[in-house]
Every structure is written in structure tokens, then in C-alpha cells.
Design a protein around this nucleic acid. Structure first.
Lengths: 347, 347
DNA sequence: TTGTAAGCGTTATCAG
DNA sequence: CTGATAACGCTTACAA
């Protein structure tokens, strides 16, 4: 039944030495095996249904063919896109991806890096959303340093400064461009729906919105900024809160699409029309939202590319010169949720 | 730099034998190591920043700690949910998931099973959508048989009959229940939007819809069945095709939510109101669609549970008694896209 | 309780 | 071009 066939078996069957069998089967560096012998080995291998043992190869070669990927929650569409990106470049290089989900627990994330180090993954991509948490960061930095010291390549997505290569999204550029675009459309009274206080991308986007509008002569009233969870319900709650404050707002900028969707639902439930009564924007450009009515103005973040870049960076064998940082660009997508209001705005 | 610390180093540092170090660190079967020594070993390990080498352990123990998962496309929400389910049970058992994406290519799927066999993954879950393709099935069956013969545990999601354990979704039950529910609501003239001809789940759902309605005295006119791609655009195209046929239809059953969404968009674009002019249903209950207006009646498929069941089945060590089949139930969710029409239906 | 030593399946070094 | 044989890092009988 579980008759494990090894390379020795193949060698014996083919009447050659173990070494020759090995060379014939994987055609290593010096692919010097007489064709006739090679054929005999291959035949024997086929006859015996031989399957190379990757763990043994990894041991002998001193390196595995797997790359680790730490995320928080695959069911999040942005995360899924990133995972797909990483898997794509990995299997273009004949590498396997070991996927680990930290479920939004910083400690788990760090532990997973250690687990992947034990697995001797040749590279690790840590791609969960980053938080403003110095102690967790220190721990993660240490774990990554250990991993790199042990010979692995590590890449963090979302923030530089963790001591290893990083891929960051140009959230500032995107938020800034969005603010300018909205201003050009005639919007003058922005409000911001943000995520949790520590959530880095959320912070960045929030701040960039505010700064940009401020620079355009529309300082964002602190009462126009509402934080909440980065969920549908969080967006709804924040929107209700904002509306309850009864401030003069002509556009609501949510720091991500899911939040925006929740906000939309809440507004609708309260009889506030989007975009007639208030315009709305998201961030990320989640594909599954394309049929939302009205279509959501947003900032596209190419999460698939982020994953691909991270993987490429991680797998780049060239001698490393300090921690590299790759920035992925974003793009403003103006849609129906923010119609041109410049006619009206002549005030 | 890459100063690989091995267990021997730890042993030497602690002044004990390799065996003792091993026992102290992993507390194997007979955890018989004097506390004092154990402490010394642990201290040494910590001082040296020792990390066990999982590949070496796998070799020595003869089994890895990884489970393989073959899917087609993680960016598909249903797939992502399933992946999350598998990852969840895997890391509850301290196992790692190796994720492989076959991108809807049957050949790739088979190859990935072989790759996972080389990795010596202790279990493999094949979870891409199944197709009605005998030759591909035979190849897959063979690959799985080889894998199992080599000592692995395999589970296929979506269809039994591939020679290994399976988890199947009760599509028939769901479709049937949906048909009955719609009939009870007064719908009498159903149309069906299907996926590609070979797509198994799509076939199953389509046939079950038709059969159920037929049994209820509303045979489904073949002209009311339109096939297409299982995509948003596919749904739109199929819907346009259906509408062009100008048949008397009071409800359109799409075989999945994405398709339904495309159908909705197409209908709307043509001025056909849902649900006033025609009702619409989906299948799967994709979470990201919760804000679609009108809310979509659908059949919930708990993809996360499917993943969990598959993983549990795959990791179940108990002696196997033939190929087991687990069925996961579905649930009809009636929502706004199929209002009660029984008042009108008195004809 | 601890140590010795034999694997685990490959690769790779180094002679023939 | 081919064949012994020593690693690779760990676990686990088997001894002591």
C-alpha cells in the first residue's frame, strides 16, 4: 500500500548508482549523464511510479521551494487579490505558497513568521494591514530580523521601517488626488469616515484627505471626522453618527469601499439620498462593488500588483543593498456617487 | 550572518547529547528528561536563538505538517471563504496550508496534486469547481490515487466519484427548495440563467430548478433556459438574450449570485424593473452583495463550512472505510428580489 | 534518565 | 561520465 518508492529503488531497478539516478532525474548542474543511462533511469522511475521527495531535496539542497505569506483574512477581497498576486508569481517560479492567516491578531502574525522560519520558507511576505503599535512592531521587527539572519528574504506590505524590504501603497497620493478631484467638481464641505485610530492605512488616508482639503481652503472641521470599525456596520454607524451631528457636508470620504458601502446603506435607510443630498467616495475599488448604485467614486489600489511586487521583491536573489521600498501607485476613479457640482457651487 | 544554529549546537552548548536536546525541546513520546537538564537545554536554545528545522523534522518523522489546498481562483469570494475555512482548521491543528491555484485549467489542477505529493503534504483538498469532463476526471482520479497510495489523505469538494473522500454541497436540495418557495410565492413562469454547459454545479442547479418546477406543474420551456459564462458579463449577456426572446417570464433563476448581478445590471439597463417586471434569484449568498438593491433572494451555500468539513475529513486519522461523502446543507433566503405574487397569481 | 548510533531521501563532493 | 560516500538536521530504537 504505502510502498514509498525512493530514488535508491529507482537506481537499483535501473542498475545504476544512486548518484546517477539523481543526476538523470533532475539533471543537476553538470547534466552529464549518458542519454542511454538517463533513459533507463527515467523508465525505471516511471515504472516504479517514483515521486521525488521535496522535503529530502530541501534538506540536501539546503533550501525549500516554498514562500510564506502572512495575511489576516482571506475573505477580504483586497486580501484575496493580494494572495492571488503572490501565488501567481510564486508558481511562475515553481514555488509553493504557504498561506497563514493571523486573524487580525498582532501576536499571531509574529508567531506565524516564526512558524514560517521553521518551515524554512525561502521568503516571507507579511501582508496584513499595519497598525500604529510600537510594541507589536518591535516584536515583528525582531522576528523578521531573526528570519533574515537565518537566511530568508522578508517583505512587509504596507509600511517601511520594519527593517526589511517593503511594498507600500501610495495612499497619500491617492487621497490627495481624490481631494483635488472632488474640489474641482465643486465640493467644499468634506467629511471623513475613518477606520480604527491605530489602523495605519486609514490614518494615512484620513490625514491626507484633511491636509489636501485644508490646502485648498476647505479645512476639515474635526466634527466632520468620524472613526469606526473598518466594516460595513462600522461604516453605517459612522455615517449615522455623522448625520446625527447635522453638519453642512456635501461629500463624505470613506477610507475604504466597505465602509463607504455601509455608509451608503445607512444614509439610504435614513432617507438621505446619495449623491443628491450628499456625495460619497470609497477607497480600494473593490471589484464586487461595481453594481452598487450609485457607482462609487473611489481610489483604485491594485492589490494584485501589490502582491506581485511583494513576491518579486522577496524572490529577487540579487545581493541586497539595504531595505528596498517599492511604492505602488493608485488612481482616482470618478463615478456617479460624486457628480459635478461646480455649477451649484458658485457661492 | 547566516549562522544556521542546529540542534547539535544547542546540545553541545547545554552539555548534553543530541538525543536529550531533541527530547527536551519537543517533549516527544516518552517525555523523560530531567527538569534540570531540560531547563539547561531550553536556555541554551534560547541563547543560541535556535529554531527547529521543520524540513529535517519532517524527514526524520516521515510526515510533514502541511496540507495542500488546490483551488482555481482565490479572488472569487466563495473560494476565499472556503480557503479561510481550510486554513482555520489547519492552524487549529498546527498545520500549514500550501495554497495552489489552478486558474481553471484542469491539467494544472492535476499537476498541482502531483506537486503536493512531492511536497509530501499530509493531506490534500481539491476544491475547484468540477466539470463534466471524463478524461480530466480520469487523470485527476489517477493523480489522487497515486497520492493516496503514497500515504496521503485526499478530499475533493464538489463531487463524489473521484475515488477519494468528498464534500458535496446540497445544490439539488437548495434549488428544489428555492423552486418550491418561489412557486408558493406565486411564480409560475420561471426562466433559468445557467453557466457553461460542462460546469457541474451549474448543471445540477439548473436541472433541479427545472425538475422542481416541472413537478409543480410549471414545466420550464427550453427557450427559457440560457447558458453563459459564470461571470458578471455572462449574466448580463444571458439576461439580454432571454429578454430578447420576449417570453412570458415572471422569475429568473440565475445559478449563482454573480450571474444574477450581471442579469440585474442588464435588465436595469434595458429598463426592465426588478422585481416589478420580473423577479430574480441567485445562488451562493455572496456576502459582498448584501447591499445590492433589490436584495437578492438566493440559496445560501456555507463555503466556509465546506472548507472546514473538507479539512476535517482530510485530517481525520481514523482508519478509513471506503470513500466517505459529506453533504453540506443549503438554505433558501427569500428577499426583496422575489416579492409575494400570490395575490396576482390567481389566474 | 541519558547517550549512541542508525536511519529518513536527496544532493554533492571527490575519486575513479 | 559514473560511482562511493559524506553530509543535511532531526528523531528514535536500542543500549547503557
Amino acid at each position: 500500500m504505502t510502498a514509498r518508492v525512493t530514488l535508491s529503488d529507482v537506481a537499483r531497478e535501473a542498475g545504476v548508482s544512486l548518484a546517477t539516478a539523481s543526476r538523470a532525474i533532475n539533471g543537476s548542474a553538470n547534466r552529464t549523464v549518458r542519454p542511454e543511462l538517463r533513459a533507463r533511469v527515467l523508465t525505471a522511475a516511471a515504472r516504479l511510479r517514483y515521486t521525488p521527495d521535496a522535503t529530502a531535496q530541501a534538506m540536501a539542497r539546503g533550501r525549500t521551494t516554498s514562500v510564506g505569506l502572512v495575511v489576516h483574512d482571506v475573505t477580504d477581497p483586497s486580501c484575496a487579490a493580494l494572495v492571488a498576486g503572490v501565488v501567481g508569481v510564486a508558481d511562475a517560479s515553481d514555488l509553493q505558497v504557504t498561506l497563514a492567516c493571523a486573524q487580525h491578531e498582532a501576536a499571531r502574525e509574529i508567531e506565524l513568521v516564526r512558524v514560517l522560519q521553521r518551515q524554512r520558507a525561502r521568503a516571507v511576505v507579511v501582508a496584513g494591514p499595519r497598525h500604529d503599535d510600537d510594541v507589536a512592531d518591535d516584536l515583528l521587527r525582531q522576528a523578521l530580523a531573526d528570519y533574515v539572519a537565518a537566511g530568508g528574504a522578508a517583505v512587509v506590505v504596507g509600511t517601511a521601517g520594519l527593517g526589511v524590504d517593503a511594498v507600500v501603497v501610495d495612499d497619500v497620493g491617492g487621497a490627495d488626488a481624490l481631494a483635488h478631484a472632488l474640489h474641482a467638481l465643486g465640493y467644499r464641505q468634506p467629511a471623513v469616515l475613518g477606520g480604527p485610530r491605530t489602523h495605519l492605512a486609514s490614518q494615512t488616508r484620513r490625514d491626507a484627505f484633511s491636509r489636501a482639503f485644508g490646502a485648498l481652503g476647505c479645512p476639515v472641521d474635526p466634527a466632520h471626522v468620524v472613526l469606526g470599525d473598518l466594516t460595513h456596520e462600522g461604516g453605517a454607524t459612522a455615517m449615522r453618527e455623522l448625520l446625527a451631528r447635522r453638519r453642512p457636508v456635501d461629500v463624505v470620504l470613506a477610507v475604504d469601499d466597505v465602509l463607504a458601502l455601509g455608509a451608503l446603506a445607512a444614509a439610504r435607510a435614513l432617507g438621505v439620498r446619495v449623491p443628491q443630498d450628499v456625495a460619497l467616495t470609497g477607497f480600494d475599488d473593490v471589484l464586487t462593488l461595481r453594481d452598487v448604485v450609485p457607482q462609487l467614486t473611489t481610489v483604485r489600489v491594485p492589490h494584485g500588483d501589490v502582491g506581485r511586487c511583494a513576491a518579486l521583491l522577496a524572490l529577487d536573489e540579487r545581493p541586497r543593498t539595504g531595505a528596498r521600498v517599492l511604492t505602488v501607485d493608485t488612481e482616482v476613479l470618478l463615478r456617479a456617487s460624486t457628480p459635478d457640482r461646480s455649477g451649484r457651487a458658485v457661492a
